[in-house]
Write a protein that binds this DNA or RNA. Structure first.
Lengths: 328, 328
DNA sequence: CATCGTTGTTCCAACGATGTAAAGACCCGG
DNA sequence: CCGGGTCTTTACATCGTTGGAACAACGATG
């Protein structure tokens, strides 16, 4: 593989002159520039990024730390982050934590300061002490603990409130919630939005209608729904804290011959592509994932470039109404 | 951040001795070793991977080039590849091609020889000339063109045949296929499996029952299904070349009040998690994705270490029978 | 014609790690 | 106490790149 030295020899100039041409330095004689460019062409020179970054003190990578790629929300987000990072000539390194404290800690430990320039984190279990990060970072979504790191995400309270308001507006009275979680920050906020929407409609907050979910997988949604359907007085609507829970809930409902939406309205959260094609299709809170990815990457880029302190960014969301809350 | 030099100064030895301790070189006096280890501990030294790799001529990264992370199959696979790569101390860099020739070419161009040690490719449009790769590579799945690169994947013909055989065994006579594609290698093989299964059951191969799909998204499956349902004599079963097509097909069927599986049996391919929870759940060919990821990474590792030439690897698959082909 | 400022180029050091060769410490037998 | 081998450590060069200083060439200025 050709190095600067090879190109320099071929063009009959010094290594530094070639470097200057490659990096767009202005003061190079047209004649030399031409010769260097020809030599670059002839050798097919590509800079050794490792060496360049060693010299520059940068790595050219950012880390994206998330629970699991098999969760559609994170897969979609990862795709968008990769695309956004490309604009800043960053490559993305994905670390999976599987939502465990140990997984998150080991992911953070792995990203030594020399491996990445910055990190985008989507933690679920980390504690305050863990946030001694060696590089600039952004948190996606909320987190229970209060740490001085910028956050990017939607207003979870307002989003949940909008979802439940929608159910209220359709006349539902016994509205359940699936996805309460002891440590997850977003869960607490979505629960708060649920609570507020009930309150403003003068509906009672009923403990038995709020079902926890330890993981946010389809199986957890199905299990939670089964327990709700077992109640003496089951709900007529359910707000799930993510789409996977909702898909699982709809599945459990179908198994009991409970019809959605006529017997039970369902709202999800995340607006996965999957939810558009399920039968029935799923009404869902739709965070602008592209905006989240873009904001997170841009924020990190400005932070790395200028080390300015940066605020949190609130991205927009919308409610996508589909069949699961209105009759076909 | 601490470097070898800092540690050496603190321990009162040369840089190389510290390097020797870090790399487990045997001949270090116990006394020095102890002092170095203390100094390592005290400084919290972490090697600069960029510098190490510059010296060693390796990068510590492999590329995973795939169409799109928002396609569940590739997201799940990516997660498994990341996990498998960790065992060899490799980090994974994901490049998305969006299934276009331009996208694939630019992804290949991006992975200069200095960026990654090896690459795992899942191409859909590349042509023979494009396979002048600067690093060892593995192809996932088949590809129409014949190039001297190891492949890892299942026997697509046999898998498709098993799927269609299953439909035949349930008594279906007019079995359609969705997903034919002019350039995609896997599409041709799955079509061949379909053809063979029909032939061995003495069923006719009917042109109008084979529907192409340019992309393998849910929308394409839905469109294809609609065209099949518009036929004067619609099929009583359909084999889709991936699960997304099948999900789309089931959705289109539901919209026309065609019941699955009683009016129409559906089989998919890939066994996405999504397919377990759809209503009805989807019968699907299940490639062993973990085995594919593991085999691809291991093969590359051996190739990089020893530069031995390596054969293709055929991984196992199974057929997961679910509600879409049997009555609930 | 000496001086100056601008422009263009080269040389050298450095980023942090490791391979090599050679020097130093140590122990043994003679 | 010396020669010779085995451990152990060190100095140095090197990977490919870039920043900075030094230097060279040049026309313009006084």
């Amino acid at each position: 593989m050709a190095t600067l030295k090879d190109v320099a020899r071929l063009a009959g100039v010094s290594v530094k002159t070639v470097s200057n041409v490659v990096n767009g330095y202005s003061f190079v004689k047209p004649d030399n520039r031409r010769r260097v460019e020809e030599a670059l062409e002839a050798t097919g020179y590509r800079p050794n990024l490792g060496a360049r970054n060693l010299r520059r003190g940068r790595t050219g990578f950012i880390a994206l730390v998330l629970p699991e790629l098999s969760i559609p929300y994170f897969a979609e987000l990862a795709g968008l982050v990769i695309a956004a990072a490309q604009e800043h000539e960053w490559n993305v390194l994905i670390e999976q934590t599987f939502g465990t404290l140990a997984g998150e800690r080991s992911a953070l430990a792995a990203l030594g300061p020399h491996l990445v320039d910055a990190a985008i984190l989507s933690p679920e279990a980390l504690q305050v002490d863990d946030f001694q990060l060696p590089v600039p970072a952004v948190l996606l979504g909320e987190h229970a603990v209060d740490v001085p790191i910028s956050r990017v995400g939607i207003d979870n309270v307002a989003a949940a409130q909008a979802a439940v308001r929608h159910l209220v507006s359709l006349g539902h009275q016994r509205i359940a919630a699936i996805g309460a979680h002891p440590h997850r920050g977003t869960a607490a906020l979505r629960l708060e939005g649920y609570r507020r929407a009930l309150a403003e409609a003068d509906l009672p907050f009923v403990d038995e209608l709020v079902v926890p979910a330890l993981n946010y997988h389809r199986a957890d949604g199905a299990a939670a729904m089964r327990s709700l359907l077992d109640l003496r007085n089951p709900p007529d609507a359910v707000f799930c804290f993510n789409d996977l829970l909702a898909i699982g809930a709809m599945r459990a409902a179908a198994e009991r011959f409970v019809r959605v939406p006529s017997d039970l309205a369902v709202v999800g959260f995340d607006n996965n592509e999957e939810s558009v094609y399920s039968s029935p299709s799923l009404t869902s809170v739709a965070p602008d994932k592209a905006a989240i990815a873009q904001a997170a990457v841009d924020l990190l880029h400005r932070r790395v470039e200028s080390s300015e302190f940066l605020e949190n960014v609130e991205t927009p969301f919308s409610l996508q109404v589909r069949e699961s809350t209105v009759a076909r």
